[in-house]
């Protein structure tokens, strides 16, 4: 089994950040042959610009940005892990950065100016997970229709089961104005 990079993918970026921007690295973890670096939201643009421009890194290609929703871990830890992956063609490496944001303020600075290709990926992340990117020139839904409600890849978004109203689940199945006024067994 060959790991994504060799010997440990992302180690180059993590080492560089610890050397050049030690205050930005909050945590560093490795597993399954890959290194992940946790950075603060405030440092994100500086970190990515450094990784792109530093001659020892040259992470010039954006791979994607997405988020992972952990709704149950607030307030101990923020709810969303926003995951950035960047690729260095020159050094044949791919690195992963994670920025944590809370449910109340799921907001990050845009990386559009750093990588032109981040534009669509940020729109997708906003569309499916409701993460907003400050400074993005047109942060609109990209995959779903513009009038869609909610962000489907959040864990609290029910994707299955058509709501069928029974006497025991009217509160869940019907919006408030459509519920019968003398709802039988309403308290169940």
């Amino acid at each position: 089994m060959t790991a994504v990079g060799s010997p440990m993918s992302g180690a180059r970026a993590a080492d560089l950040l610890e050397r050049e921007l030690p205050t930005a690295v909050r945590r560093r973890e490795s597993g399954f042959g890959e290194v992940t670096v946790w950075v603060d939201r405030a440092d994100l643009v500086a970190v990515c610009t450094l990784l792109r421009d530093h001659p020892d890194a040259a992470y010039t290609t954006p791979v994607f940005v997405t988020a992972v929703d952990w709704p149950d871990r607030e307030p101990a830890e923020p709810r969303f892990d926003v995951v950035y992956m960047l690729r260095s063609l020159q050094y044949n490496d791919v690195c992963r950065l994670i920025v944590q944001v809370t449910e109340d303020d799921p907001n990050l600075p845009t990386l559009e100016e750093v990588f032109a290709g981040m534009d669509w990926h940020e729109r997708e992340c906003f569309d499916l997970l409701g993460i907003t990117f400050t400074g993005h020139h047109a942060l609109q839904r990209i995959l779903l229709p513009t009038d869609w409600d909610g962000h489907p890849l959040r864990k609290d978004y029910a994707s299955f089961g058509e709501p069928i109203a029974f006497t025991h689940n009217l509160e869940w199945a019907l919006p408030a104005q459509e519920r019968p006024r003398d709802m039988p067994g309403g308290s169940r």
Binding site: V4, F32, F64, T66
Partner: peptide, 20 residues
């Protein structure tokens, strides 16, 4: 439990799966 990113070279380019 864990997270990996595995990419393969599809006819269209880098097809990656980031799995948590």
């Amino acid at each position: 439990a864990g997270q990996v990113y595995q990419a393969v070279e599809s006819p269209r380019g880098e097809l990656g799966f980031y799995l948590v």
